[in-house]
């Protein structure tokens, strides 16, 4: 598992990359009340805003961490946004993508580095 400075996590699963937000991010956001996900099949580029997440406090964007194509989105968190607070690292993943350029993965943090990053 790798982590970005935008508080997203990326995990490889059978050749596709699953993306979600970290526990720290979900705590900082507070209760999540709305999630908007991209359409399956969308081509995305790294650092593009592709999801919107709204908590009781504010709206935030989720960026594509890598170049590629969205192959699956998690409708369960659209139907029940509270799942993002309950299980951000597990059931509440955001989307799965086929990645065309894996090189940015080298720059992303491992768990130890991320823990240090959030202090």
């Amino acid at each position: 598992m790798k982590y970005t400075e935008e508080h997203e996590w990326i995990r490889e699963e059978d050749g596709v990359y699953v993306v979600g937000i970290t526990e720290h991010a979900s705590e900082q956001l507070g209760d999540v009340v709305f999630v908007e996900l991209p359409e399956e099949g969308t081509e995305v580029t790294k650092d593009e805003d592709i999801c919107v997440i709204e908590s009781v406090k504010a709206a935030s964007d989720i960026l594509a961490p890598l170049d590629g194509e969205i192959v699956e989105v998690n409708q369960a968190i659209v139907d029940d946004p509270g799942k993002v607070n309950e299980d951000p690292l597990g059931d509440a993943w955001f989307f799965k993508m086929k990645v065309s350029d894996l090189s940015p993965m080298d720059d992303y943090m491992d768990e130890a580095a991320y823990k240090k990053f959030i202090g």
């Binding site: 507070g30 209760d31 009340v33 009781v56 406090k57 509270g82």
Partner: peptide
């Protein structure tokens, strides 16, 4: 702004 219970609860 909130206590450990959180805004929603």
């Amino acid at each position: 702004v909130q206590y450990p219970l959180g805004v929603m609860k």
